[in-house]
Design a protein around this nucleic acid. Sequence first.
DNA 1: CGAAGACATCGACACTTGTCAATGTCTTGT
DNA 2: ACAAGACATTGACAAGTGTCGATGTCTTCG
Lengths: 114, 114
Amino acid sequence: MAKKASAKSTAPSVCCGSVAEVPLDETAAEALATAFAALADPARLRLLSLIGSAEGGEVCGCDLVEPIGRSQPTVSHHLKILFEAGLVAKEKRGVWVWYRVVPDRFGELRAALA
Amino acid sequence: MAKKASAKSTAPSVCCGSVAEVPLDETAAEALATAFAALADPARLRLLSLIGSAEGGEVCGCDLVEPIGRSQPTVSHHLKILFEAGLVAKEKRGVWVWYRVVPDRFGELRAALA
DNA sequence: CGAAGACATCGACACTTGTCAATGTCTTGT
DNA sequence: ACAAGACATTGACAAGTGTCGATGTCTTCG
């Protein structure tokens, strides 16, 4: 069995369809809302932009604390939220954790804004 | 001077560019975060889907309270947030206020998720 | 083993947010 | 003028969120 390369996020999976489709039911609305809530914070958006614009497509967590200007526990907390929202993937390599964005997830959210 | 047909929203205008571009500065991140925060609530997403999927493209506010299952002041509050985020436009006609979505604004946010 | 360093977790706190009941403001029809 | 109805505003409260310092867990290197 192949070694698992990266942990699985707990993204609620927004499924298909735009917001302007058949009136969203409460459950679907909650899932989508959780996803957008992950984007509703300046620190997290800056983390995403740092990770997404990195060459090689990935960044070591240790390089994310200083540019954000927030404490290490706070950055760790935000990265956890981004991960659980399925927006970033992480992979532990040695002492470090490497992050990269998950384009498919962004595609889902973009589709919801059709 | 022509009579103003609809009120102007106070949308922060996200400007161009994806999140994965040159590391977002704090100010830009805050503006974007505010926009996404408007989408980060189930009630508001359902309001958007109700408005967006309405025939004629617009809905009377009076038809939005019951489907959402929340009190009239609460719905009024959410509509105000959507309006200030530039996601919906409103127009008062007689006793009623008619809402419609603002596609351009959705385009901006979609572009930010490129 | 022991020290160092990268992350994660915990506890606490200020601040924000969603919600409702009560009340206010306008417009329309009688 | 008055009553009715559509929205908006206010005040209050519970729940959620961002932040930090302190501390815990793991991995690597002497």
